[in-house]
Design a protein around this nucleic acid. Sequence first.
DNA 1: CCTACCATTAAACGGTTGTTTCAAACAGGC
DNA 2: GCCTGTTTGAAACAACCGTTTAATGGTAGG
Lengths: 230, 230
Amino acid sequence: MTSLLDSTKDRILAAAEELFARTGVARTSLRAITALARVNLAAVNYHFGSKEGLVEEVYRRRLEPLNRARLLNLERLERRARKPSLEDVLEAFMSPVAQLARDPAQGGPTVMRLLGQTHAEAEEPFKAWFAGEYKRVLERYHAALCRTLPGIPPEDVRWRLQFLVGALTYPVAERQLVELVSGEAMDPADVNQVVERLLPFVAAGFRVPPGTPKPARRATRRRPKVTRNS
Amino acid sequence: MTSLLDSTKDRILAAAEELFARTGVARTSLRAITALARVNLAAVNYHFGSKEGLVEEVYRRRLEPLNRARLLNLERLERRARKPSLEDVLEAFMSPVAQLARDPAQGGPTVMRLLGQTHAEAEEPFKAWFAGEYKRVLERYHAALCRTLPGIPPEDVRWRLQFLVGALTYPVAERQLVELVSGEAMDPADVNQVVERLLPFVAAGFRVPPGTPKPARRATRRRPKVTRNS
DNA sequence: CCTACCATTAAACGGTTGTTTCAAACAGGC
DNA sequence: GCCTGTTTGAAACAACCGTTTAATGGTAGG
């Protein structure tokens, strides 16, 4: 049995999560983790087999509930109404992110920085698992979005879903950068704001009629190009 | 004088760029770089002072032209018409990305993966420089966007600009993940598609009237339901 | 020719990495 | 109690890291 109080395993997970989110996986040594967790160095290899094993567990612990909530939300939504609104579907996808960030027991705001670093970090086998999980969710939402948006070709919906993921991931992940650029500190509670502000933004984007390949350029651009200094 | 043919310096830069984009900076050793470049290990420290120096040069070489093109595009746009259209401004911001990705001499598609890894990687001093450069560009575009979008509060414009950056960065950066999820390989030439498809998407988002704080919540979907405080 | 000077080479440096070892401390079942 | 299996502790392991050194090759200027 592992956990009534903060077991060794839990403390390692918490410390690793904190450091991974702050510095990235590759730059975080096991010694830094075990020092922060006040745990012996060997405990990591004992409990998780290897650093890779620890990394997988840290991410899995957060990503699994997130994706499960997303799928559950959509399921519940479709059971309630055969034709949910676009906004409902989008909120079902985005709100679990805010929920996670709000609950310190589930990682709090730290977990969002983790998500942003997911892709750059991680070794091959874990990356494959992660992509597989994510694919299931995105496929499911793609189908749901196509249903609420007849008239938009599925391929367009797929692209726009990618845009949504990017717009959602980037601001919460690159918090440090966002702060520097905006001059304003981003409160952890502002993850709600991200969702609230992003929802109408992407909703409008999803509804754009397809197939207008080029937005009309006012007057033909006479001299198209740049000062090539190559 | 360094460069008539592929000098040592150039080969190091090319190899480093390739490996940084593929594996990330932290996971890429100088030995891997010099092996790929078929160059002596010490050459890196000789030409760039340190690994950090090399990292900075690799990124600077690509980011500087990108940001310069963005600023130049906007300048030229505003000189031509005092009130450029929203689409024009957005294209001025996004098109240099596609241009870079199209030109192998400027890094080609590889450079996009670099951009995506920018934030997670990099040490403090370089990060500060990068954020400063980026901030200048974003501030400039923020002002331009506010001018084309009177009626949208500047703070909303700022958020939406963040969304744009995220939506633009993510799909081109996480190419591997996108491929896995979409099942389709993303051709380097498709960076054009990203821009073409993203432009109308975000344009619609930017035009959304502000101040609709909550999209209708769960039970009542029909009613606009504009209750909630700000 | 010789002398500076820059570029390149091979080898080694100290430090940190993830991982392992082995003994000690601990738990609960009989 | 004693015993079995699990968990922790301090120390050591080999491998790799970024960096430095010292000697070399090559080339332009005097």
